[in-house]
Amino acid sequence: MQDLGISVLFQGDNFIRLMGGLWITIRISLISVLFSMIFGVILGIIMMWKNPVTKVITKIYLEFIRIMPQLVLLFLVYFGSAKHFGWDFSGEMASIIVFVFWGTAEMGDLVRGALGSISIHQIESGKALGLTGGQIYWYVLIPQAVKRLIPQAMNLVTRMIKTTSLIVLIGVVEVVKIGQQMIEAARLTQPSAALWIYGVIFFLYFIICYPVSVLAAHLEKKWKD
């Protein structure tokens, strides 16, 4: 009977290596998500300012980052910065920088949307009650905005995890690259390895992202006014 390609996965320490690769993917995502959330909240609040200068600058930043494919941004930082400024980022560092820039833009827009969606009478009522600006943010705006924000932010997290698959293209050794190494190593002994390994990686991404999306959808439904 022909040997199934899936057995490649259990040869030697292949499975542990693949999980190690997955951990690198997750680590890069988590670091990027963490910084993006922090900077995104700050950016979102800055975008609410009425100052025309900050408005224009944040708008340009947001539009440029969002319109460029993430892979182009990765190329810009990975190849461009090395050539131009002589910064020799590792692939991992470059990808974290790009994902933080991109995640901040996306998160900032979500924060702005969530803050903006709160009707004006909430703020006015707060003022009428004699709250200060800071108090209005802290007691009125933020608690309401957070409920709208969290499900969307979780969807952004799944998007960021999915996007980290691109970093294999700038030479980071993560789950996809390790999978490719296994396929290469087993090319002669198990030619069908590619089908199984890529299938497994496909489901690994699914297993990570699916619970987050389900939870996000659940929270969105639950908190819908």
Binding site: T163, L166, V176, P191, A194, L195, Y198, F206, C209, Y210
Partner: peptide, 23 residues
């Protein structure tokens, strides 16, 4: 819908382009 939304295009393409020829 869940499978497609929760996996990256890159992996889908790898599977289609390098995986499927094996069968």
């Amino acid at each position: 819908i869940e499978l497609s939304r929760n996996t990256p295009l890159l992996i889908q393409l790898f599977f289609l382009y390098f995986g499927l020829p094996k069968i």
